[in-house]
């Protein structure tokens, strides 16, 4: 285990994530599932003719039934779900992950894994950049300590290469059953790629997480010469930072984010912005509010 993280590290909290809609599956869990069962939260009344469960006859409802039928209480099923992290490990994701604030992406993945196992769900991960990374994939599991495992693997692997072709191909590994999928990426890719990535996840409940860095989004120097290097292509560009360009840069960043937001809403829910470091409380708020 990484000693920097070992004794306490980032405190892990339970995250109130929910699957949109009802889960399918027979394994008991914490999420509302399709079908009615004998335990759990009350769902509806049913006639004893259709459900011959005499132990759950609701006497009061039977008496007050004007037609005089016997009513049986039905309860909703609760099932577990699979929680997946689909992690973009292209070169651009290297950015801002070796700072003093810690590796926000690894913290996020670890937190999701922790919360999933704690919440009786299974956790899995697919991480890939332009090529598939079988060594980083984790099958859906409830193994204890998977959060540490995920944290360590993600911390040790910064991205490389350009593009997300491998990641899109690796999405076929996801289970057919509807799962909650956190897509962690900076989404600095052509909009077609974003559409392709999210479109392939139509079967699942997709929760995008946009990894950003304030260094290139908001916290820009006011004046000076900046020479930038693209982490994916290595292309160098000189920027003469000045008031007009700074404003254009910030406006571009806002426009890019707004365009992403439109794509995300088309495919499910609004995204969570992972800026600089992982804030578990903000993430929990986001999950509770549904990002609105």
């Amino acid at each position: 285990m990484n000693p920097a993280h070992a004794p306490d590290g980032a405190p892990r909290v339970d995250l109130p994530y929910r699957l949109f809609g009802r889960a399918r599956g027979v394994a008991p869990g914490a999420h509302r599932a399709v079908g009615a069962g004998a335990n759990g939260a009350f769902l509806r009344h049913a006639s004893i003719l259709e459900t011959s469960d005499a132990r759950r006859i609701d006497v009061r409802a039977s008496i007050t039934d004007p037609f005089g039928g016997l009513k049986v209480r039905r309860f909703e099923n609760r099932a577990r779900i699979d929680v997946f992290v689909v992690l973009d490990l292209s070169g651009s994701m290297t950015f801002g992950r070796d700072g003093e604030a810690g590796d926000a992406v690894a913290e996020l993945c670890g937190a999701i894994a922790h919360a999933a196992v704690r919440g009786q769900d299974r956790f899995g991960m697919i991480a890939a950049g332009p090529t598939e990374r079988a060594d980083l994939a984790i099958r859906a599991t409830r193994r204890a300590g998977v959060d540490e495992d995920v944290w360590r693997r993600v911390s040790a692997n910064s991205g490389q290469g350009a593009g997300v072709g491998g990641l899109i191909a690796a999405l076929d590994e996801l289970p057919q059953r509807r799962s909650l999928v956190f897509v962690v990426s900076d989404f600095l890719m052509p909009e077609g790629d974003v559409d392709e990535l999210l479109g392939r996840l139509w079967r699942h409940d997709v929760a995008p997480i946009v990894s950003q860095s304030s260094a290139v989004e908001t916290r820009l120097p006011r004046f000076g010469l900046i020479e930038t290097r693209d982490l994916e292509t290595g292309r160098r560009r000189l920027v003469v930072m000045r008031r007009s360009l700074r404003e254009k840069w910030l406006a571009d960043a806002r426009a890019r984010r707004a365009a992403l937001d439109r794509v995300f809403r088309r495919h499910g829910r609004p995204a969570f912005d992972l800026v600089d470091r992982f804030d578990a409380d903000a993430f929990a708020d986001h999950l509770l509010s549904g990002g609105v």
Partner: peptide, 15 residues
Amino acid sequence: LRLSAVPSSAVVPED
């Protein structure tokens, strides 16, 4: 000049 890494050239506006 010392290079500043950016995740993608797309974040740098054309100028």
